[in-house]
């Protein structure tokens, strides 16, 4: 089965983000992911408002991280949200963004171990597991249990990009959120996820594998490319050399973009983004072009496609365009 999700960054007023999520639910999207960054509006406040105005769509953080939020608090948040949106809550968790963590003096140490233990603790909390937890990084005592019952299971999706985190997602995740947009990168990621699942003795088909893409759709390609340019500038600037080299993007060029962004030379940074970079790090174009690209991504083995920021030149119009002209090519409308 093919599922479709949408990501929102809660930079906008609560009612605007909620308006768009209702729109997405009306159009047949399956999931809503709200990013968790300390410098935007709080993810769980945003999600609980959204939960109040939606009925069917699944919703959750996409993604939170265990460096800034202790896993017992993440467990408490998603469990509480589940009372408002019973059976609809999903939880995306990853190692987070190194640059953002450094802004608040937090070092990203042992990301694999940290994410693994965090997932274990969240699951234990949700089922009110008795006994203490003795991880290498996190510990909880036998008394650290919820005083309330959680009626539903909450699927945990692991946000991943590198080979080891992708394998971890395959080994322990209910789902995986692949942070990539290019079919080659996603195909490689799916291979790692399956490898991780098989090593852990799991059937890879149990895992909902989502491509969590930078996305933009508009009536024509030119209009779709414009809003994605700044997003791609940041992706290029933050990509490791091996990813850049694999896509024939010169490391020096990426470094220049990084330096221009750091110095707030937006015109130069965004001006250096070319079509090849956009095609590598985003899914964008007219509805027909997007349909073709998404179809190719499903052929890599993903089961879920998430349209991430910026969505398009006009969010409302782009959600409509996607819902009315792209989605029906893959699934029946509600």
């Amino acid at each position: 089965m093919k599922s479709f999700g949408i990501e929102f960054v809660p930079m906008e007023l609560f009612w605007r983000t909620t308006y768009y999520t209702i729109q997405a639910e009306h159009l047949g999207y399956d999931s809503i992911w709200i990013t968790d960054h300390f410098n935007n509006r709080n993810v769980y406040v945003s999600l609980s408002v959204i939960a109040n105005y939606t009925e069917r769509i699944k919703l959750g953080p996409g993604v939170t991280n265990p460096y800034l939020v202790h896993p017992v608090m993440t467990a408490q948040s998603v469990a509480s949200l589940n009372e408002v949106a019973s059976g609809r809550v999903i939880c995306g968790i990853g190692a987070g963004d190194r640059t953002t963590l450094e802004m608040v003096g937090v070092e990203m140490k042992a990301p694999l171990r940290t994410v693994r233990e965090a997932v274990e603790i969240i699951r234990r909390q949700i089922v009110r597991e008795k006994g203490s937890y003795e991880g290498r990084l996190f510990k909880t005592s036998a008394g650290a249990r919820f005083n309330f019952k959680v009626n539903d299971g909450i699927p945990i999706y692991i946000g991943a990009q590198g080979p080891k985190m992708l394998q971890l997602a395959g080994a322990i995740g209910d789902g995986a959120l692949i942070n990539a947009s290019h079919p080659d990168d996603i195909e490689r990621a799916v291979t790692y996820i399956r490898k991780g699942a098989e090593k852990a003795g799991r059937d890879p088909k149990e895992i909902d594998i989502a491509a969590y893409t930078s996305f933009s759709v508009a009536e024509n390609e030119k209009s779709a490319r414009k809003p994605v340019t700044p997003v791609v500038a940041y992706i290029v600037a933050g990509s490791p050399p091996f990813i850049l080299e694999k896509h024939d993007i010169k490391v020096e060029k990426a470094e220049k973009i990084r330096s221009d962004l750091a110095n707030r030379k937006w015109g130069e940074a965004f001006g250096a983004v070319n079509d090849h970079m956009i095609d590598t790090f985003a899914v964008c174009g007219s509805p027909d072009q997007c349909t073709e690209k998404i179809d190719n991504l499903f052929k890599t083995g993903i089961t879920h496609f998430v349209t991430g920021s910026p969505l398009g030149p006009n969010i409302r119009a782009s959600i409509n365009l996607f819902g009315l002209e792209v989605l029906p090519n893959f699934k029946e409308q509600p």
Partner: peptide, 9 residues
Amino acid sequence: AKTLLYYWQ
């Protein structure tokens, strides 16, 4: 805003 969302839903 909340009334608006109520009707939009």
